[in-house]
Amino acid sequence: MRIVVADDHPLFRAGLVELLTIAGLEVVGQASTADEAVESVRTTLPDVVILDIRMPPTNTLEGLDVARSIRSEHGSDVGILLLSQYVETSHAVNLLAEGASGIGYLLKDRVLDPAELTDAVHRVGNGGSAIDPLVIENLLKRRRQRSHLEALTPRERDVLAAMAEGKSNQSIASALSISEKTVETVTSRIFTKLLLEPDPDEHRRVRAVLTYLQGTDNG
């Protein structure tokens, strides 16, 4: 899998590149500013670009703009994984507004867990998503009031959160120490309780769950 890494901090970038390389991923380009990132993606056409959300020149939300322009230039061919010192639910909501496929949004600290990082990179590279658990937690919290989420058991809620993060049945199973079969059963129960159409496709499933979580209706 071919990766472009964009972060204005050289040491962090180097560390991240090394970490990715150790994990068997190929880093084909590096960038330290927003413009460089766009340019690098244009020339190398990677599977995934890892972007720091704050980059020069203004050090605010360049990452989001870069993501938007890459998305409009390359569609979902290039997966985008945004890293940030803070995760803000509203950024995630903005990011996911145009679809969850090939999108990731993680707290920067997550890179300290190489397994989690590579899992996320792979998911994003394969058209899936990787949403930070903190975002999902907030979405669940916001949605819990006056909604069918109240009817979920704690276990079902955990599975729902993992699904929303973009995890596959397999990784959900290993994360929660249950069998994949159980995950499938729980998943279909959740969809029934939330009055959602069951969907075997994992990517579309994430989309449905995120849409549900962001919804403002009482459904």
Binding site: G15, L16, L19, Q85, D109, L112
Partner: peptide, 8 residues
Amino acid sequence: VTTALALR
């Protein structure tokens, strides 16, 4: 973060 990454 960088230091933690370096340790990793």
